[in-house]
Design a binder for these strands. Sequence first.
RNA 1: GGAGAGGUGGCUGAGCGGUUGAAAGCGCCGGUCUUGAAAACCGGAGUGGGCCUUGUGCCCACCGUGAGUUCAAAUCUCACCCUCUCCGCCA
Length: 435
Amino acid sequence: MLDPKFIRENTQIVKEALKNRNYNFDFDSFLDLDEKRRALIQETEALRSEQNKLSDRVKVLLKEKQDPKPTIEKSKEISRNLDILEETLKNLKTQFEWQLLNIPNIPHASVPVGDISCNKIIKTCGEERKFGFKPLTHIELAEHLDILDFKRASKITGSNFILYKGLGARLERALINFMLDLHVNEHGYKEIFPPFLVNRESMTTTGQLPKFEEDMYRLKSDDYFLIPTAEVPVTNIHRDEVLEEEQLPIYYAAYSACFRREAGSYGKDTAGLMRVHQFNKIELVKFVKPQDSYDELEKLLLNACKVLELLQIPYRVVLLSTQDISFSAAKCYDIEIYSPGINKWLEVSSCSNFEDFQARRGNIKYRPQAASCKPHAEDRKQKPEYVHTLNGSGVALARLVAAFIENYQNSDGSITIPSVLRKYMDNKERIAPGL
RNA sequence: GGAGAGGUGGCUGAGCGGUUGAAAGCGCCGGUCUUGAAAACCGGAGUGGGCCUUGUGCCCACCGUGAGUUCAAAUCUCACCCUCUCCGCCA
């Protein structure tokens, strides 16, 4: 959510942002609505002020044993007028709130303006492996090794769900543990295991609601949502809180399953592990001081990349353009890994800075300390300010597994387990049929 | 799921429908005292919004949430949410 006052005073900046995002929004009627809303606020508050004065007057009259009737009559009339005005104002406020929640974040100046073709590959790391044979796809390999079972998963649930079996299931678990250990032990994140169901408020804070409700799995009887990413519960840890400055920065790393309806995406990249309704992910979430957030984004990106460096999977980092970044983000890097069997780059992470967009929605603040060393009472008491929030996958499983087994396949159809992962796999060196 | 109790400022906790934005205590901040600190004493402190005369300004709202009664609601009514205790069920 943007600051309404900021929007009012910087209409050109907001208009430009909407245009650069190619975002369909009737901004002029929003401004109009805001003006009407404020005019009505003034009107109702003036009336209420008058009513309060009359109420006080009644109080005094009663005390002095005088007749309060005429004053009460006057107050009644104001009350009737207020009822009408307040009804209208309530409607205006609801509309205003709704629209405000539907305005996307303003892209940072360093974000390339344009559509997907303007995305910039800013770095490519790792050598693409030279195969002495034609590499198989993860679907073929998984079938051969009997570690993934797509048919039965769709029998159990439906299409685009996965059933991991044997060393496939074990590989999934190994990767989760490997990544969590890395971020917790080496990168200074605190481990979190969040609820996988969240309420409407939490989904609104991070920006999935109200705009993207159709993409979410919802439990109707409780009005809970299955999380599409651990970002939602983890960012909401500090919703409606004022943090102390010395608590910042806060780094959290969370494993969760992620659930996405992927409505409307059938037929496109849905084969195998590429686009599934439930997948596992390690998510990194940061709460930081505003002035630090862009440095923190770079560090977050490095933390996520480290996973791929240790696993020695070729990856590249893409700086997303204004039309490709998500609704809530001000700046976003995608990390893509190369999958030689299907010959594709797969997105396994989005590292984003939301600035105060989510913090404002979720009312997440911190109290800055006074900078002065000669403290006066005035300087000491600093007003709470919104924190900046960031998050990035570190990294998403499913696609990682696809690229992993395609990269580590051997000509006999077995998969080599790299040494960093062996301690999580009972020191096994390979996944082969019958193991 | 059933029965009961309760949700008030950073915390604990008062609060006959009108001098209550809210007692008291703790904590916090500033000051006095002190070599320094503690104690003691004095004083100060919430959030959001609107307005312009941008002022140590005026006004409005906020006592779980939302409706209602009333000239007037923290206080009365209803619904919902949450917490605690007991019972039941269960990994």
